[in-house]
Design a protein around this nucleic acid. Sequence first.
DNA 1: ATGTCC
Length: 475
Amino acid sequence: MHMNRINGNDLLTIGFNQGKILGLALEVLEKNYQDTDRETVLTIMKNVAEKPELYLDHEILEDLATKIIEDANAPKDDTISLNETAMPFNIYGQEHIDEGAVRQMDTAMRLPVTVAGALMPDAHQGYGLPIGGVLAAKNAVIPYGVGVDIGCRMALSVFDIPESHFVNNADIYKRELIDHTRFGAGHGFVRHQRAEHAVLERNEFNMTQFIKTLQDKAWSQLGTSGGGNHFVEWGIIEFAERDEVLNIPAGRYVALLSHSGSRGLGATIAGHYTRLAKDICKLPKEASNLAYLDMNSSEGQEYWLAMNLAGDYASACHEIIHNKLTKAIGGQLLARVENHHNFAWKETWNGEDVIVHRKGATPAGKGVMGIIPGSMTAPGFLVRGKGLEDAINSASHGAGRQMSRTQAIKSISHQEMDAILKANGVTLIGAGRDEAPMAYKDINMVMDAQKKLVDVVAKFSPKMVRMADDGSKED
DNA sequence: ATGTCC
């Protein structure tokens, strides 16, 4: 479509600055220069950026040149200052957390809108707010405080099926798992295989032209899982004692556990509103990824609706996966539990109405159930929150990585990977060594570090795991 | 985590 193939990065290289001007320049390119060759266009755009006064009568570039001059003469003191000292925050399991994550949290605690913060024991560095970071803000929402995969969540189905049924019919469980799940970045269902769900009819899709354009892809990706650390797995869940709330007697049951988010829909929404927030809310460089939107502004309200749409879409994806597989194995459902761990909520903290951002953190209000996975061989836990205000009613969202993906691929051999799967009786479909159990922290240590935050209700042991195929080119 | 446009 774009003959000249010039993108925002090219414009940044030849002297354009991030912001509205860049957007306008890209629009001009799209409308007027699609068929002009790349070098010519780059030369023209470079000249406009350097000497806009020469283009004030140019039939195509007049408007862009005017805006560049206006922008250059606009007062430049619109940067919002951070507070000099960071507000204190609690860290759970500090011995497991890298310095970078603490430093990022410290920066977040200096935002003028910050009310409270906490760091969970699986925390590590991310964009803006660290993964495992919880931040309560006053009347503001931070797109990168939610993260790229809006509404990424866990869902668990417990079946009235004994362990022996799984052991004796493993081939059927495997076939159905492969048949009903889809993995990989960009992947979706072909038209006749597409799922239906009421979330596709939601009015929010008509809210703006931008969101409308995402609707068809959202349909094709409905019920898919994506890539990275996302999975769908069969396992055995063990209730050491009867759970009165779920009404499940002590015992071992077949269960289905899934981890995924809002796919391309959420990622595109996250990118769009982060850019918008950065345009509106100019923060010092070390905090620029924490740009926030006022909840009373139209942009803030728009993000809030779009974020909730992506969250409900992520939930619908899990619902479709679980419904298909429940039907496929003819299971009777005893309980289904699910929770977002990349999201923002309107909550009360210390008597104050706040926006709580959990970026890789499990909601753990008093009595609230959640799921904290371990790794493809280590157990995950069904938990019940204790509602600790110091932790902003939160807990970790997993074990957390102890190796980067590249480090894991370099240091873990195929033999080691096979051995640990075999030792744990786990069948793996897909995945690379970057998702190997050794790349993750010891989940038991992480659970120990958050004993004040959650009670364990049941222990889930993975038995058959499906993840995206290995994307690495390494041997 | 996403997927060929900041």
